[in-house]
Design a protein around this nucleic acid. Structure first.
Lengths: 150, 150
DNA sequence: CAAGATGCGTTCCTTCAAGGAACTGAGATA
DNA sequence: TATCTCAGTTCCTTGAAGGAACGCATCTTG
């Protein structure tokens, strides 16, 4: 899909979606993050079409979120790992999880929990101001034109 | 699109994408947030097909992120506004903006800047632990099975 | 050694969503 | 009466997603 060229838009949301927002891509990234790194394992875990999985992996590698790494010479076998760019995208997925757990949870509760190793608590991410450290919600900011404005 | 039923998956990322991850939906939500609330204005601003825009608005209203509000009785005219659920989704978009500005920016820099009204700084969101307040990155958590695990 | 099994894709075909232009309809305006 | 605005709907074409089958190199098992 993606008939429209979101990648060329002058908007960080559009460009993020162009890179990692195609159907299945966020789930592929999540799986690679939790240690499912190989083609067949990804296909089995997600139930995705092999054709689409191959396309997504190619695209994510080209975009720089994933890296293909050889883990066996004979037979030649590759697996996929997150690059720095890819693992920082997990921040976005964690924000999605926090929102999804709150607003789209099943009756039974969230399927997975996140424990912060440093403090030991079950937790979720909370958006904060990078400058002052206070909680930062959508209503707390004013939007101003930036240098890259068309 | 979305031939697969992401909405039925037991994963908050998949369910979030099912609700707000279809092509154009994040941009529609962003536009409504910044004050573009009417059908024709959205269509003009985004350059989206009127057909797809109508589908997206219907879906976002049904899902609970947008609310249709009458702003004129004669002639009868409706506009779209964010619900609580929708405005909390802006947290996810702000995470996307932070990531997109860092990794997919043009040479000219980000198109828009966000000023935190409380502290006065140009800023971006930073994910922090809701329990202890420290910065929380993907590598800082352990994933554990939750109550809703299939 | 032949016969599967494994890993990682590619090919081909069908179905359904996106894009785009034209059309509808109610009310306002001139 | 004719035109304009707003908010969609209809219809047709194109192209992406789903799915099954196939390809090919290498291991493993009888």
């Amino acid at each position: 899909m993606q008939r429209t060229d979101f990648a060329g838009m002058n908007c960080s949301i559009a460009r993020s979606m162009a890179v990692a927002g195609e159907p299945w891509s966020p789930l592929v990234i999540r799986d690679v993050f939790i240690g499912i790194n190989r083609f067949d394992d990804l296909q089995r875990d997600l139930g995705i079409s092999r054709k689409v999985l191959a396309e997504r992996l190619r695209h994510l590698v080209d975009a720089g979120l994933l890296e293909r790494r050889r883990y066996s010479e004979r037979p030649p076998r590759d697996e996929y790992v997150l690059t720095r760019m890819g693992s920082e995208f997990i921040d976005v997925l964690m924000a999605m999880v926090a929102w999804g757990d709150r607003w789209t949870a099943q009756d039974s509760g969230p399927p997975v929990l996140y424990r912060h190793r440093a403090c030991g608590s079950i937790t979720h991410v909370e958006p904060r101001c990078a400058a002052c450290g206070e909680v930062l919600r959508s209503g707390d900011v004013d939007v101003e034109p930036g240098p890259g404005l068309a």
